[in-house]
Design a protein around this nucleic acid. Structure first.
Lengths: 148, 148
DNA sequence: TCCCTTGCGTTCGATTTTCGAACTCAGTTA
DNA sequence: TAACTGAGTTCGAAAATCGAACGCAAGGGA
């Protein structure tokens, strides 16, 4: 089973993990959530090779995580890459990565950017909770019933 | 800037994204959260090449996400790979991926495994919340103050 | 009209990664 | 003594990535 087969496994964790676990894809999504939308800007800010950038954008378009939206500049029509609703729903994944990074990889450093709740100015963090009792859960509070 | 430089960027999102965005790493973590601990078992269940498996395990050991723990079997001492506290703290990342997968990639399919809260039997989901007012947040509720 | 610029890719040869199969090695069982 | 097992290591072939150059369509300026 090559790596790509995980993309079609009947598992709601392995399929996303295979998709976002491809090199550059998470970093590309980070850049998108930070507001980058155009090919040239991705290329400039991430210094990714153009052919790989083309490939990754196409995969995300195909998966319907991104969409191409026309815009006008200098009287010309061009396209930019924007998140779909499905793409915006990846926010918790990125926030979970950041919450983890803040706790475990930040030796009291200067942050590259700040995030705060528009309404109250509070901080942002990802967590896992129970859909019934709303308790916050860790790996140890969760029972896995595996079928493979 | 090659891919590897993101691993040392002063950004608490890009460093984790670069680490977990390496091919196989997210799938490896999934397998670990499902209970796999031994080299041979990773190799068998994931069908990853042995050299890449060695490399990925070593990176995670070096990052202190995993630790090698000795155990006895047939009177011999061997080692298995287990999550550290830092590693266990990646749970929300995996759960965020799964929550997304359930919503967007599961055409009413059979799940590979079930997760439920040990105490109350409820389901499990990842979310993002405000550290002040505890409201659940989406990308649109959050203000980004970028410095680059 | 001709040339230059811009945004967005495509192409291509060189370099890195990954693959898969074979090999190693130490301790164990037959 | 020979075979087996878990955990890697080695190595040639295949795939992915890199960087630099090329293509192309639309506008603008001369």
């Amino acid at each position: 089973m090559p790596y790509s087969n995980f993309a079609s496994m009947p598992c709601t964790l392995s399929r996303p993990a295979a998709l976002l676990g491809e090199r550059w894809t998470l970093l590309l999504l980070r850049q998108i959530f930070l507001g980058t939308r155009r090919f040239e800007d991705f290329q400039a800010t991430m210094d990714i090779s153009r052919s790989v950038l083309t490939d990754r954008l196409n995969v995300l378009l195909q998966e319907n995580v991104l969409k191409r939206v026309p815009y006008h500049e200098d009287g010309r029509t061009r396209h930019e890459y924007r998140l779909t609703e499905k793409g915006r729903d990846l926010y918790p994944v990125l926030m979970a990565l950041r919450t983890w990074g803040e706790k475990w990889m930040a030796p009291e450093e200067e942050e590259t950017f700040h995030l705060h709740h528009r309404d109250c100015g509070g901080g942002v963090r990802a967590k896992v909770e129970c859909t019934e009792c709303a308790a916050e859960l860790t790996a140890r509070d969760v029972q896995v019933t595996a079928k493979q």
